[in-house]
Design a protein around this nucleic acid. Structure first.
Ligand SMILES: Nc1ncnc2c1ncn2[C@@H]1O[C@H](COP(=O)(O)OP(=O)(O)OP(=O)(O)O)[C@@H](O)[C@H]1O
Length: 929
DNA sequence: AACGAAGGGGTTTTT
DNA sequence: CCCCTTCGTT
């Protein structure tokens, strides 16, 4: 162990590179024909995933207007004056405080959960490390006075004299009621209770000040666990409860769907389920998709983009597929050189998922790239599709170029609240800045034309964030939005700070601060606020550090510990999380947990909706909804196999191109349309293929009919599955008797797939319910033109929801209540857990090797490494009570990890301000505090 | 056209 | 070690 320890202190050099490669940025600037597409939206970019599109779109965004039309702020300047302390809460707030008293059991549990504090300082530590598993089983004592007299007989988590789970993880006084039920995981379903909690309950002065800040632009910069999200939710509640706004006049923008869900849960406790569901809460992408769905046929600037209200949202896979296809086509039309370069580009696309990431150096490649980009955009138009980036860029364009639209949306959302603002990209910033009347975006401002009076005030903007938690720079996020752009564009912005961390024990906070203190000097200055952060909770358990030979041993130790905590300390599995850098790391963890019988669930990118068979079935629905969806068409024309291989697809495409229509719509009209030149297609492809095409057409048509009839989504899904013959394909035994040759493995896999499809029917029901439930969004109450598209677009709405707003939480919410959460650091953002295992803390993994390479021409190494640091910071600060940091030397999972990986520099930094205070009883964990 | 076997190539994070 | 592509066989 001594060796491990000393290795933690190896000196490391941060190669600070002042060289920021301008090459690519320059290329972008010069060759990007911003409006060359002829549709006025040339800044959309590819694939939606990269720095590229944001990179050069930013150029376009801020050249607008300098007439400096002022944005009136506030009007409520007095509000915060009566708020210097909670006792000065105005009477109507008091009223709610009183109402809030009558808490249900459930809410007690809720409050207990959300405020698990830390170990009482009266506890004494000693060095005994004897584990006494049985001792914990005793009934809990119900008052803080009795528990405060207990002593902790170990520095280790395994000490023996705890009386209850809550005593173990600790709690504050609020939690010290009768709410210490072992099943703590139920905290996120407040629906059981009808009693409301007052939003001001238990808030600090500075939090309340933020909640009640006057209209205008407000920016709350504060560290992790300081209550930013809580403040944001409380402000939304405040606006509705006390400021007279209708719930749908408040737009809350979060970063992930999960975050939106959590926000809504909090709102429910403040406002009740009914009112809370009327508040508009979504991600940037989901909000933009809603706007476009509504506006794309109504506003001239959007009509020019050639989509209809039935447009489909292309996900990453669709975008990649389209790009590939574009490049393949292009090989026939470009100089010979391209024949060599294009396959290279294509193969890179498979990995890197965007053109933006590719270092392009040669002139012919540049040519190819520009051409491909234009073709790609045309392909999206032909498919009646927007990709992820375009959802944002087109919304931005709408607000920039259509003053009426800008006015309408300002009117619709007098208040816009944005969480995790440090991770907004330039276009997202532009969207909210326009709505909020930013100085540099007011040129196209509202109401000045046609003699109309400008009677609509810009939306008030309220943003919260933490620049030290910026982890999406690789995707185009720009911390400068929070750091400087906001005060540049909103000179009267009120900047607020929250100084206490309510989430974590001082031990955890200290470790987190240590990580930041290791930053390079420039960044250090900027994040000063975060390592002087004050832990509100009393002292807790030491940070546990483990070092292991390989990832399997590491995973096993974590599993063992999780089980021990669950069985002997009463910690619910669902209150534990294992966080890691790469999805791949989930494998060994899953295996270890499975073999020990630790219930677990992998949260994240292997989403249910990403599964092949699920996407296949949904493609049928997509075609039914939007017959131009070439991506879906190519995907399922021959799935399940019906004799329509690559050749057939090719023929169909050729003929479609000749007729100037999309392949999908041609096939769907096969034999059916008056203009269809009889027999031309059949002749081109041959009789057998023609039959396959007719079959395919019939399937899609029956699905479309079902949808148009207004059948439930789950019925439409079931029909698609049945008609397309997935069952006979996956499980041939059932239908025909040709199942002899299928191997056992294959059969197992197919059965899994089939059960996924079975699930899809149920999941569809849930998704549709969610659409109906909280998506009256752009349907009612705006200019009185309710439901103008209503009905006909419901399948599109359903599919949009899945594309833009779906994760696997459908599963997670219900049946995995008692399971350890495994997820990447990125997906853990904004969440919190009693116990956090941050694993794989070695050089090469965290920071990831790819961030340690020399400058890649896009972002400097320093920037990338600092983002990795932020990632470690985010991970550590997810922990409420217990933090485990682990490292492994070798990994079977990757042949790129060396055989003796050093512990992460961030592990080093985290422990720098702590002292080693003991060793666990089995020599697995080393304790620091 | 369909399916299985062999080979080659790759570091990551996600709305 | 895993995924994807390509090649070869039925
Ligand atoms: N005044 C308070 N008293 C007690 N607990 C609080 C208070 N404010 C916030 N908390 C709790 O602290 C925890 C962190 O709050 P929240 O998630 O809002 O922080 P955050 O600033 O958004 O964190 P992060 O940036 O890490 O996502 C939550 O459990 C919340 O309930």
């Amino acid at each position: 162990m001594a060796a491990v320890h000393s290795s933690l202190h190896m000196t490391r050099s941060l190669h600070m590179t002042s060289k920021v490669l301008r090459c690519r940025a320059h290329c972008r600037g010069t060759r990007a024909p911003l409006s060359s597409s002829g549709f006025g939206f040339g800044f959309g970019g590819f694939g939606g995933l990269n720095g590229f599109s944001y990179g050069f779109s930013a150029r376009a965004l801020f050249v607008v207007g300098h007439d400096g039309q002022d944005h009136e702020l506030g009007g409520c300047g007095l509000v915060c004056s009566w708020l210097s302390s909670p006792s000065h809460v105005p009477s109507h707030v008091h009223h709610h405080l009183k109402r809030g008293r009558a808490l249900s059991h459930h809410q007690h549990a809720l409050r207990a959960m959300s405020s698990l504090s830390s170990l009482r300082s009266t506890r004494r530590f000693n060095q005994s490390t004897v584990r006494s598993p049985g001792a914990f089983q005793s009934r809990r004592s119900s008052s803080s006075s009795s528990s405060s007299s207990k002593t902790l007989s170990s520095l280790d988590a395994h000490g023996s004299s705890f009386a209850s789970p809550s005593d173990f993880l600790d709690q504050n006084d609020e939690a010290d009621t009768e709410s210490h039920i072992p099943g703590m995981a139920s905290s996120t379903s407040p629906s059981a209770s009808k009693k409301l909690v007052n939003y001001a309950d238990g808030m600090s002065d500075e939090q309340l000040k933020a909640v009640l800040a006057p209209d205008g632009a407000v920016s709350v910069k504060a560290g992790p666990g300081s209550g930013k999200t809580r403040v944001l939710a409380a402000r939304a509640a405040h606006l509705v409860t006390n400021e007279g706004f209708m719930p749908w006049q408040v737009l809350c923008i979060t970063f992930t769907r999960k975050a939106a869900g959590e926000l809504r849960d909090r709102l429910k406790t403040f406002l009740g389920a009914e009112t809370a569901s009327r508040v508009h809460a979504g991600t940037f992408h989901s909000v933009c998709a809603r706007i476009l769905r509504r506006e794309v046929e109504n506003r001239l600037v959007l009509r020019k983009t050639g989509r209809t209200a039935d447009f489909v949202v292309f996900d990453a896979g669709d975008s990649i597929g389209t790009m590939r296809q574009v490049l393949e086509e292009q090989m026939f039309f470009t100089p010979k050189q391209s024949l060599e370069t294009a396959p290279k580009l294509i193969s890179r696309l498979g990995r890197e998922r965007s053109f933006g990431e590719m270092p392009i150096m040669r002139r012919d490649e540049v040519q190819l790239y520009v051409e491909a980009k234009n073709r790609y955009e045309r392909a999206l138009i032909a498919s009646n599709a927007f990709d992820f980036d375009q959802l944002l860029s087109h919304t931005s364009m709408l607000l920039r170029d259509d003053p009426d639209a800008l006015r309408d949306y300002r009117e619709r959302w007098p208040h816009i609240l944005v969480d995790e603002f440090q991770d907004t990209n330039s276009i997202q910033y532009d969207i909210v800045a326009r709505l909020a009347g930013a100085r540099s975006t007011t040129a196209a401002d509202v109401g000045m034309e046609g003699g109309k009076k400008n009677d609509v005030r810009a939306s008030s903007l309220f943003v919260v964030g933490d620049t030290d938690q910026a982890i999406y720079g690789w995707r185009g996020a720009n911390v400068e939005n929070m750091r400087v752009n906001l005060s540049r564009d909103f000179p009267a912005v009120e900047s607020l700070h929250l100084s206490a961390n309510y989430r974590s024990t001082p031990q955890v906070v200290r470790a987190a601060s240590g990580v930041l203190s290791g930053q390079s000097r420039g960044n250090l200055q900027q994040s000063r606020a975060n390592f002087s952060i004050r832990a509100h909770r009393p002292s807790g358990l030491p940070v546990h550090v483990g070092s292991f030979d390989d990832d399997v041993t590491e995973a096993d130790a974590i599993s063992r510990e999780a089980m021990w905590l669950a069985e002997h300390r009463g910690v619910s599995y669902s209150d534990m999380a294992v966080l890691y850098r790469t999805n791949r790391q989930a494998r060994s963890l899953e295996a270890a947990m499975a073999s020990r019988g630790v219930p677990h669930i992998v949260v994240g990118s292997t989403s249910f909706f990403q599964k092949k068979e699920v996407k296949d079935v949904l493609s049928y629905l997509r075609l039914a909804s939007n017959p131009h969806d070439t991506s879906s068409f190519a995907r399922v024309l021959n799935v399940p196999p019906r004799g329509l291989g690559p050749k057939a697809l090719d023929e169909v495409k050729k003929l479609a191109a000749k007729r100037g229509m999309s392949a999908a719509s041609m096939v769907l009209a096969f034999d059916g349309a008056a203009w269809e030149p009889k027999g031309e297609l059949a002749e081109a492809v041959g009789a057998r293929v023609a039959k396959g095409i007719r079959d395919f057409r019939d399937i899609v048509q029956s699905v479309a009919e079902s949808a148009n009839r207004g059948d439930d989504a789950s019925d439409v899904v079931r029909l698609a599955i049945d008609r397309s013959g997935f069952r006979d394909w996956l499980l041939p035994d059932v239908g025909t008797s040709k199942g002899k040759k299928m191997s056992k493995d294959k059969l197992d896999e197919n059965m899994k797939r089939w059960s996924n499809l079975d699930n899809l029917v149920d999941v569809a029901r849930g998704v549709q319910a969610a659409v109906l439930d909280d998506d009256d969004f752009l349907r009612e109450d705006v200019s009185g033109d309710a439901d103008e598209n209503g009905g006909s677009n419901t399948l599109a709405d359903f599919l949009e929801r899945i594309a833009v707003f779906a994760d696997d939480s459908q599963d997670a919410d219900e049946k995995d209540d008692q399971a350890v959460r495994l997820m990447t650091l990125h997906s853990a953002k904004g969440l919190e857990f009693d116990v956090v295992f941050l694993c794989g803390m070695n050089e090469g993994l965290l920071p990831h090797a790819i961030s340690l390479n020399d400058d890649d021409g896009i972002r400097s190494k320093e920037m990338r490494v600092n983002e990795e640091r932020n990632l470690a910071f985010v991970g550590i600060t997810r922990a409420k009570s217990m933090l485990y940091l682990t490292h492994h030397k070798t990994s079977s999972a990757s042949r790129f990890e060396g055989s003796d990986a050093l512990p992460s520099r961030f592990l080093d930094d985290a422990l720098r301000g702590l002292k080693e205070v003991g060793v666990g009883d089995d020599d697995t964990w080393f304790l620091y505090q």
